[in-house]
Amino acid sequence: MNDAMFRYRQNVYIGGRQWCTWGVVLLVVGIGLLARVTYLLVSGFDLNAPIGEFECDSLLFYDGDRAYAASQPVPCIEARAWPKLLALSVGSMPFLAAGSALWAVGMSRIHTYKYFTECDRLQDAYKN
């Protein structure tokens, strides 16, 4: 194997590692956004509104048999509105999709490099 081919294959491997790294970074961002949505759904909170202080239940685990909107004061409902949570969760999807794609392409490049390196090793062993 000549020097130019070796450098090309090394660049393929290094590029694959970089793509995997960026993929993992984007996946962590997307998972972080989803973790924030989960936290907002399951945690209760205290609200200091101009009209007074309120102790609000979580959106998923609230006390009472009635619907959340019927069992909570209006400022609590407005503070944790579903459209905001939905926008946050939908906003995480591009990060997750791009991160998955970058990671998959990077791993493909790394495995291709390892495959051709093994082919060269076997070819050299066959010649000798």
Rank of each mutant, 00 (worst) to 15 (best):
Lys114Trp: 05
Phe61Tyr: 08
Gly30Phe: 03
Met93Tyr: 06
Ala125Thr: 08
Leu33Val: 04
Ser58Lys: 00
Glu55Met: 08
Asn48Gln: 14
Tyr113Arg: 04
Gly23Met: 01
Gly32Asp: 05
Tyr126Lys: 13
Arg66Cys: 08
Leu60Ala: 09
Leu33Gln: 10
Ser92Asp: 02
Ser71Ile: 02
Asn48Trp: 10
Ala67Trp: 10
Pro94Tyr: 04
Phe95Cys: 09
Leu26Trp: 04
Asn128Lys: 10
Leu27Ile: 06
Cys119Lys: 15
Thr117Asn: 11
Pro75Arg: 00
Leu40His: 09
Leu96Cys: 03
Arg109His: 14
Met1Lys: 09
Phe45Glu: 00
Ala98Asp: 06
Lys84Met: 14
Phe116Cys: 11
Tyr8His: 07
Leu26Phe: 12
Thr21Asp: 01
Ala35Ser: 14
Leu102Arg: 06
Phe95Val: 05
Ala104Ser: 12
Pro73His: 02
Leu47Pro: 00
Ala79Leu: 01
Tyr126Ser: 14
Tyr39Asn: 07
Ala87Met: 11
Arg9Ile: 03
Asp124Asn: 13
Tyr115Glu: 09
Ile77Phe: 03
Ala104Leu: 13
Ala104Arg: 15
Tyr113Ala: 08
Leu27Asn: 02
Trp22Glu: 01
Asp57Trp: 06
Val37Gln: 07
Asp65Phe: 12
Val28Cys: 08
Ser89Gln: 04
Gly16His: 04
Arg80Gln: 10
Ser100Ile: 10
Pro75Gln: 01
Thr117Val: 08
Leu86Pro: 07
Arg9Lys: 06
Tyr115Lys: 13
Ala101Tyr: 15
Leu40Ile: 10
Phe95Ile: 10
Val12Ile: 07
Thr112Pro: 00
Thr112Trp: 04
Ile14Gln: 09
Gly23Cys: 04
Ala81Pro: 02
Val12Ser: 02
Arg109Glu: 10
